[in-house]
Design a protein around this nucleic acid. Structure first.
Lengths: 325, 325
DNA sequence: CTGAAAGCGCTAACAG
DNA sequence: CTGTTAGCGCTTTCAG
């Protein structure tokens, strides 16, 4: 900046102004500075800027996994809006591990981000304290609670589970099995589904649980397991992910089973392929685009205005009925 | 740090040392400092550290899209290793747009990252200049070239295309159609496939091209289009993505077509589901895990040793034959 | 509208 | 092993 200033015949401060508040610099000076910048190939140093102004224009985003479309599509929408507001994203994967998340929070806070996005509402011991101490806006996504750290945007997993049960009963199914991946939120959906379905149908709801992430292969395996234990007519499978559901569909087709006649399937996530499988998949849709956007906007609002704390945004969910159930 | 030092009865510098090079501080002092840190709830400021040492421990990663598993799984492997070495990832999506990539490069460089990962080998006008000026290690992934900016790790897309053609001919197919998404690298695979297949079979290779990203729905549409134009027996479809291939499979099943008898299908990417579709999908496998790891290691090597420039790592590809072709 | 001075919180020499 | 002195490259007052 000093070099640029020298070339333009002004002081370093004026160059700084030209870059951050050009309206405070006379047009001619501005012109000379711009030329000088071009000539010198000057690249601003945002690190120094952040130190001096204690504003980093950095937002930290922590999520379980980027390879899961459910989270990555949220990140996509979120970072898109943030970028539009001049913020950059520094991210880490936490892999459903609270310890790892807590370490990541500490590390990220040392970069003095202007805000932080966290996935889920359950965090480790020190997390809340660190975040409150940092005094930055925090948005928790993909779930809701009455006691967010700062604000949250998501939906009720228990609500989604029991809504699926209501739907299944209304659709005439009298037996159900759950297929669930190793994910705390998926378990909450399963539990709510099972409780509600059991209550309404007066039947037991067996569970097939995995400790891994959902996948098509695991879904095929799950159906095999279900069939081995024998399945009564009018049974619906409540899957914690469309990946599972698709696996069930593929396995069913391979075995010559008719869906939903022999077995019905409800997925979760309403992924892009859900509408195009054979038969098309009944699933629970969460608008991840909107969710990511709302999360971004919540933060941006907090920057500019300083909206009320403890704001909770319920984006809801929608049971999309197609042919599989 | 000054506060912590005061509390521990040492100077600020000693606190700094205790944190970065604890072996240079006496055990007793270290203990006192650690206690003081706990008491004060001190959180290091990596921004100031980066400014003073001109080492940010930040690595920028630019990729077309995080919602595409092909890139996100690479990012996952890459960031995992980088995190293990104490680096954090600051990322941006560039959406197959060179201008956007160039802007992102400039913005990211202002953060003084210690290295940068770029996807692809084709970049905008100023990109190369900026990166060379920055003087940081750069790794270009997912493609290879003899003239990388610094180093690259990927595979030959033309090679993959013609290998698929060789395979198809050997497998006895005499007609082919390509289905391609709007992606420069996919087009290079298509062109290589078509050229080679046409040469060996002495037939034309019609193309179904989309300007969007691949999806299951678009794949179904593509097969419909192909069938409308009439397809000769012994035709293989070369898809630029497993998403397309899966769509073709679903549409074929829906129409009562037998795969590979009526129509054969080759995918690309060997995604997790490829082994579990019905019939299972023949696809081209790239080890994205390894690719991401090699990219990370290439950078880490450059940090420590300063490996030769212009290193090009060909991770190759593997045609995985399953049932669809 | 422009400049001078101070300092953000840390690390990098250099002394002791 | 510990402390002192100088910055890193900006932004933020405060004066002109």
């Amino acid at each position: 900046m000093t070099d640029v200033g020298r070339l333009a015949g002004v002081s370093q401060v004026t160059v700084s102004r030209a870059l951050s508040t050009p309206q405070k610099v006379s047009p001619e000076t501005l012109q000379r500075i711009e030329d000088a910048i071009r000539q010198t190939g000057y690249v601003p140093n945002a690190v120094a800027g952040a130190l001096a102004s204690s504003k980093s224009n950095l937002v930290a985003a922590l999520m379980p996994s980027v390879t899961n479309i459910v989270y990555s599509s949220m990140l996509h929408a979120f970072s898109d809006i943030m970028w539009g507001h001049g913020y950059q994203i520094i991210f880490s994967e936490t892999g459903f591990d609270l310890d790892r998340e807590e370490k990541a929070i500490a590390t990220h806070l040392s970069r003095r981000p202007d805000a932080m996005l966290l996935t889920g509402i359950k965090h480790g011991q020190g997390a809340r304290r660190m975040l409150v101490n940092a005094g930055i806006p925090v948005v928790e996504v993909w779930d809701i609670t009455d006691t967010p750290i700062d604000c949250c945007v998501g939906f009720s997993h228990a609500g989604a589970g029991s809504a699926a049960a209501d739907f299944a009963i209304e659709a005439g199914y009298r037996h159900a099995v759950t297929i669930t991946a190793g994910d705390e939120r998926a378990c909450r959906r399963r539990d709510a589904f099972a409780a509600r379905f059991a209550k309404l149908s007066q039947t037991q709801v067996p569970a097939v649980d995995f400790d891994r992430s959902a996948s098509l292969g695991l879904g095929r395996q799950a159906l095999t397991q279900v069939l081995e234990q024998g399945v009564l007519p009018g049974t619906v499978l409540f899957c914690s992910s469309d990946q599972f559901a698709q696996g069930v569909l593929v396995e069913a087709a391979d075995r010559g089973l008719s869906v939903p006649r022999d077995i019905a399937v409800i997925g979760f996530g309403d992924q892009e392929f859900a509408a195009y499988t054979e038969p098309s998949l009944t699933s629970i849709r969460i608008d991840r685009q909107i969710l990511g956007q709302l999360a971004a906007n919540a933060l941006v609002d907090r920057f500019t205005a300083g909206t009320t704390l403890n704001a909770v945004h319920d984006v809801g969910f929608e049971l999309v009925r197609r042919s599989s159930a």
